[in-house]
Nucleic acid binder design. Sequence first.
DNA 1: CTGAAAGCGCTAACAA
DNA 2: TTGTTAGCGCTTTCAG
Lengths: 338, 338
Amino acid sequence: MSVTIKDVARIAGVSPSTVSRVISNHPRISRATADKVRKIMSDLDYHPNIMAQSLVSKTTNTIAIILPRPAEELFLNLFFAEVIRGIVSQTSKAGYDLLMTSGSSQREEVEAITRLVRGRRIDGVLLLHSRNNDPLIAFLREENFPFVLIGRSPDDQEVLSVDTDNVQASYDAVMHLVMQRHERIGFVNGPPNLTVSQDRMAGYRKALQEQGLEGKPEWIVEGEFLQESGYRAMSFLMNLSERPTALVVTDDVVTFGVLRGLIELGYKVPEDIALVSFNNIALAEMSTPPISSIDIGIYQLGYTASHALLASIQNEGEGKKRVIIPHRLVVRESSLQK
Amino acid sequence: MSVTIKDVARIAGVSPSTVSRVISNHPRISRATADKVRKIMSDLDYHPNIMAQSLVSKTTNTIAIILPRPAEELFLNLFFAEVIRGIVSQTSKAGYDLLMTSGSSQREEVEAITRLVRGRRIDGVLLLHSRNNDPLIAFLREENFPFVLIGRSPDDQEVLSVDTDNVQASYDAVMHLVMQRHERIGFVNGPPNLTVSQDRMAGYRKALQEQGLEGKPEWIVEGEFLQESGYRAMSFLMNLSERPTALVVTDDVVTFGVLRGLIELGYKVPEDIALVSFNNIALAEMSTPPISSIDIGIYQLGYTASHALLASIQNEGEGKKRVIIPHRLVVRESSLQK
DNA sequence: CTGAAAGCGCTAACAA
DNA sequence: TTGTTAGCGCTTTCAG
C-alpha cells in the first residue's frame, strides 16, 4: 500500500516515534537525524495519514460550513461565493480544510452537523446566517462546540459572531435618500424570519421615525433574495395610489429584478424612483443605471469569521464576542437626483 | 470523553464487534440483538468516530474540489455557486462530504491535492476546469486516483469528464446571429489557456468559415471572466474603423460589462450591436435589455460529474469516459432585430 | 449468530 | 536525544 511512518523509520534506521517527532517539529531532536529523516520522507514522497493523525490527536484541522438551501437563501449565490473565498483564504493559510455539508430541511441540517460533530470529524463550524430559535445554534451551544456565526443571534448574546451593523447600514441607506429630498421611502426586504431582515427593518424604521417621515405599511414588501421577488414587488408597489419615490432594497440581485420591473412598467430610475441596495456585488456597477449599494465587505466577513473560529478552537474561549465589519455606501446613479 | 463503541457494547451486554456489525448493517446478526443495540446507541446518542472508521476502512466518504483562484477564473463566482449546489446535492444524497481546498498558485494547488490524496484524506477529486498540460491531471493520473473533470482535457482522451459541447454551443450562438442577418460577428472570449475558451473559439471559427463570413482578427478579444474585460473590450472594438454588428460573449457577467461599455459609448443593443452570451445566469433575464444566452446546465454539470465520480470510486473503472450535458440557446432581446 | 484478538497509522508518555 | 510501549476507536478475520 502506501508508505507509512514505519517505512520511513526502517529506511532511516530510526524508530517510528523519531519520525513522528520530525513531522511535528519536535524541539528535542538532533539536527542530523531530522535532516536525514526529512530526506528519506521526501525521497519516498511520504505524506502522513491524516485520519490516523486525527484519531490520536483528536483534532481534525477541518471546519465545516453548511451550504445554504435553495430558494430561501439563494441570494447567497453571490454572497456565498465571496464569503467562501474569504473563509478559505484564511483557513488554508492556517492549514485547515473546509468541509461543506448540506441538508434539505432544517432537521437534516442539524443531523448532518450532529454526525460531523459527534463523529469528531471537524473542529468547528461556521454559520452563514441565523434565524429565531435556530436549532443549530442551540445544538452547538449545548455541545459546547466551537462555532462562529456570520450574522447576529437574536436569542443569544454570548454567541461568537461577525456581522454587519445592519441596523445602522439600513439607517444610512434611508438617510442617503432623505438627503436627496425623498420623503416617501419604501423598503423591499428579505425573508422576515432571518435576523438580517429584522435588523435592516429596524434601521429603516428608526430612520423614518427620527426624520418624522410617514411610513405606509404597504410600502414595505417582504420577499426572498431573488430577482423575481424584486420584479413582483414592483407590480404591487407601483399600483398603489400613493407611491414611494425611493426604495431601499435588501440585496443587489433583488434590485436587478426591481429595475427590470420598473422599466417594463415604463418608469425611469432615478427620475421616477430612486434605489439604494445592499451588498455591492460587482455587477451593481455594470447595471443600467449603476446601482447605489452598501458594501458590507463580504470577503472580509468570511475572512474574519474564519479567523475568529480558528482562534476560538485554539484558545478555548477568549476574544471578542461580537465583531462588526464596517460598511460603506457606494453612491451611483440609481439614487442621484439629476 | 465522548461515547464509544465500547460503551455501547458494555451497556448492551455484547462485544464491540457486535456493535460494529450493527452499525454496518451486517446481515448475520439477530434481529433481537440489532434492535437492542440500536436502542442503546440512540439512548446514548452514539455516533461513530469517522476518523477511526476511515483509518481501518481506508475510505473517507469525502471528495475534494479546488476553489478556483481569483481573477483568472472569477467568473466562477456564479458558475461556482451553482455547480457546487449540483455537486453537493448528489454527494450528500450518497452520504459523501465535500472538502474544499485551494492554492494561490498552480504549484500550491498540486501540493494541496497531494497532501489530501497521499494523506488518504479523500476518495476522489472533482476538477472544475482544465488547461493545457494541467499538472493536476498529470498527478492524479499518475497516482491512479479517481477524479472527474468538469470540462475537457486537451491532452488526454481517457480522462473521465462531464462537459458542454462548447464547440457546438459556440457554433450555435454564431448561427443564431447569422439567422438575424448579421455578417460581421465578433467574439469576446475568456483566458486563452483554458480549454473552454479554446473550444468556443473553434466553434466560432467553424461557423464563420462554413458561412463564408469574413472574420477579422481584431474582432476577437481575449480577456478574463470579469465584467471589466467586457467593458474594456468595447472601447477597443467600437473604435475600429470597421466594426462588427454582433458579438458572441463567453460569459454573461462579461456581457454585463459589454452592455455597460456600449451604453456609455452611446450605442444601443440590439439596434446597433446584437449580443449573445453563455451560461444564462439568473440575472441575464433581468438585464436591460435581457440577454440572449446559452444555458449550459451548470447545476446539471455539477450533479452529473459528482455522480460519475462516485461511480468511479465505487466501481473502479467502467462507465462512459465523456458525458455531454446538452445546452440550449435562450433567445431574448439582446440579439433580436426589431 | 457472536466474541476475541489483531491491527489500521500515528502520537505521547515513560524510560533509557 | 531517541526507543519502547500503549493506546486513539473502529473493523475484520478467525474461532466457536
